[in-house]
């Protein structure tokens, strides 16, 4: 099996699905000739031509709007927002239009499409290339939201998103694009179902639920705590809407302690929803307050390395937070 990075896995998933189904097409800024600013669509235009891999004008609302039109006509568009930060010009199309097509037509119309976007920080991208936007979209019934953290998950979940009958927001942690290489399956064997969390590390004393870039950070923090005889179970949500409440609740009922770790700023982040839901469901099992470990409530991640470092969670900070929950 080939070894691929996360961004190559994205590209492979697109390639395989386009080869499998002629209805699948790709559109976005710089996705064609250049193959995407992160190379997530590299070589696709050469293989599938300039219509199926379409360089759009620099206008996100119409990228989403055109994708909606294509989906309504039976095509399966995979639209790229060059950065998640720039999905906001398309917010109305996504939230008011795409998400509501099925509901507002009482099931007469549907809008299966995928909107991909690189998300998150830690790459010196500063305020406008670092934002974590998942909470905005996970709030919206009618959308599915996927945020993978390993190359194999990225491939399997993107393939499943393309085959899903509903619109999917697919967020790719850009800091992980080239972080690791992993072996991965091809074709049908690569598929992974949406809505299933992964237990990334087994543990007994404390459940740490996270997603995206912070999966690896949380695992590293958990390894450190192991030296202190604190055994942490790490769960990677992978899909945020619908999220896998069963796997999470099962773990919390076992450990009795829960920390939710997310890269977005603390207030109203998606982890707040996870914390609230599990606090309600698992109240009787809990031995410590449900705790969030998240980024500070500043508008976005600054450019200066010192400030970026001050913003980002790292293994030290996560370990410190987990320790507090474990010792409560």
């Amino acid at each position: 099996m080939p070894e691929r990075t996360l961004v190559q896995a994205v590209r492979d998933a697109l390639f395989e699905e386009m080869a499998r189904d002629p209805r699948v097409c790709v559109l976005g800024e710089d996705v064609g000739r250049k193959g995407g600013v992160f190379k997530a669509t590299e070589g696709l235009q050469k293989q599938f031509g300039p219509e199926r891999v379409l360089d759009t004008p620099l206008a996100e609302s119409s990228i989403a709007g055109v994708a909606q039109g294509l989906a309504l006509e039976g095509f399966i568009p995979v639209a790229e927002m060059q950065f998640a930060d720039y999905s906001f010009p398309a917010f109305n199309q996504i939230v008011n239009e795409i998400a509501k097509v099925r509901y507002r037509s009482n099931g007469d119309f549907s809008c299966p499409l995928v909107i991909r976007a690189p998300t998150g920080g830690g790459v010196r991208g500063a305020l406008y290339h670092s934002q974590s936007v998942e909470a905005f979209y996970a709030h919206v019934p009618g959308l599915k939201v996927v945020l993978p953290s390993t190359p194999a998950d990225a491939k399997g979940l993107l393939k499943a998103s393309i085959r899903d009958p509903d619109p999917v927001i697919f967020l790719e942690p850009k800091k992980l694009y080239r972080a690791v290489r992993a072996e991965m399956a091809e074709g049908e064997a690569a598929l992974l179902p949406l809505g299933q969390a992964a237990v990334a590390r087994r543990g007994e004393h404390l459940t740490a639920i996270t997603y995206g870039y912070l999966r690896a950070v949380t695992i590293e923090a958990a390894e450190r705590l192991a030296a202190e005889d604190i055994s942490v179970e790490v769960i990677d949500l992978r899909t945020l809407r619908p999220w896998d409440m069963e796997t999470c609740a099962h773990s919390v009922e076992k450990t009795g302690r829960l920390a939710v770790i997310y890269e977005a700023n603390r207030t109203g982040g998606f982890g707040a929803e996870v914390a609230a839901e599990l606090a309600e469901r698992c109240f009787a099992s809990l031995d410590a307050p449900v705790t969030r470990i998240a980024s500070p409530d500043v508008p976005a991640m600054p450019f200066s390395p010192a400030l970026e470092h001050a913003f980002m969670l790292n293994p030290d900070r996560v370990a410190e937070g987990l320790r507090r929950v474990a010792r409560y």
Partner: peptide, 24 residues
């Protein structure tokens, strides 16, 4: 094609439908 009460978003949507019809 089902619309919404929002002013304007049907215009790029129609462009996308038009593109699909051109392809067909």
């Amino acid at each position: 094609v089902i619309g919404s009460s929002t002013v304007g978003p049907q215009i790029p949507k129609a462009a996308g439908i038009g593109l699909a019809l051109k392809w067909k």
